[in-house]
Simulated assay, not measured.
Amino acid sequence: MKAAYTFSAALIIALSTSCAFAAPVLRADISVVSPIVTVGDMFDDAGTLAEQPMFRAPRPGTTGTVDIDTIRAAAARAGFSEFASNGLSAVRVSRSAALVDETLLSSLISNDLRARGILSHGMQAQTMFASPVGTIEAAATDQPARLDGLRYLPGNSTFTARFILAGVDQPLTVSGTIDLMVDVPQLATSLPAGAILSEADIVMRPVSVRQADAQGIAHLDQLVGMSLNRQSREGMTLRIGDVSTPLTINKNDPVTIYFRQGPLTLTVKGQAITGASEGAPLQVLNLMSKRVISATAVAPGAVEVSTSGLTVAGL
């Protein structure tokens, strides 16, 4: 009985020891992000040795092979010699890459200009490279490219920029021009004179800041609810002089003329000789007396005659 107990205990110890020190298992094909291949990258069941470095990874975006003898030598340097090779003679090692292109580089330049206060709200930087920048494979990190320096001359719009690319030994230097752009309001469709503008009638499109400043471009809030002064075509850029306050009363509109003096209020039918917006003066014809008098537009179809210098007989 005692012998049986001793044998069982020894078997349990042997099994637990075998599980605790299970040999790492070699993988046939691995993909890494960092520049160093670790034991945990190369082997399953790497245990406490998982973070130990073995050898350098290939360049970002490339794949290489490592033969079994090189793996054995690297494993020995990492602190172990026994592993399950599964009959493999070599392992494929691929390194992930992040793609760096003109779009990413342009966004980094824009961010720098915005941080300097050169780009304000509603403005964009349109970057043109002197030579095309092909797609570059950098290390797959949170920041595959970093702007290391930017020289920008607003007078002639030229720039030179230097970038540091993750996993790439040499910095990247590019040059070209930067046009500062701003969104301006343009008509979304052709409209007749007198049309009242709504937001749906206006689209915002980018033009150069110099052009916008030279042409006196209007802001969106200066246009919505205003009246077009003339027939306008689709795509026309809107300026302050293109619009005016909508007419409350148009020429030839029938109106009611109000005359107030103390508790007395008189009304008479009339016809507008000229148009006017609310609060503006206009000429109206008193249809009863056939007199043309000056009045003020107070509402659609309603004008008011000032009591100053005018009597009931003057109506």
Rank of each mutant, 00 (worst) to 15 (best):
D169A: 15
Q170A: 14
Q170I: 11
Q170R: 15
P171C: 00
L172N: 03
L172D: 01
T173N: 10
S175G: 12
G176Y: 05
I178S: 09
L180H: 04
L180P: 07
L180D: 04
V182R: 05
V182C: 03
V184S: 12
V184G: 14
P185M: 04
P185S: 09
Q186H: 13
Q186N: 08
T189H: 12
S190T: 13
L191P: 04
L191Y: 05
P192L: 03
A193Q: 00
A193W: 01
G194N: 05
G194S: 02
G194E: 04
A195K: 12
A195Y: 11
A195G: 08
L197H: 06
S198N: 10
S198Q: 14
E199M: 12
E199I: 14
A200E: 13
D201H: 10
D201T: 09
D201G: 07
D201K: 09
D201R: 07
D201L: 03
I202S: 08
V203C: 02
V203P: 01
M204R: 11
P206Y: 00
P206N: 01
V207A: 09
V209I: 13
V209R: 14
R210T: 05
A212G: 09
A212K: 06
A212M: 07
D213A: 09
D213H: 11
D213I: 04
A214W: 03
Q215C: 04
Q215N: 08
G216Q: 06
I217S: 15
A218F: 02
L220T: 12
D221V: 15
Q222C: 00
Q222A: 13
L223A: 05
V224K: 08
V224E: 03
V224F: 08
G225V: 14
M226N: 08
S227E: 12
L228A: 05
N229T: 14
S232P: 02
R233F: 09
R233I: 15
R233G: 08
M236H: 13
T237E: 12
T237N: 06
T237H: 02
T237D: 07
L238C: 04
L238D: 01
R239M: 13
I240V: 13
I240A: 10
D242H: 09
D242A: 07
D242Q: 04
T245Y: 08
T245S: 09
L247A: 06
I249N: 00
I249L: 00
I249G: 03
I249D: 02
K251R: 14
K251Y: 07
N252V: 10
P254L: 10
V255K: 05
I257Q: 03
G262F: 11
L264D: 08
T265I: 11
L266W: 15
T267C: 11
V268A: 15
V268N: 14
G270I: 04
G270S: 05
G270F: 07
G275I: 03
A276C: 03
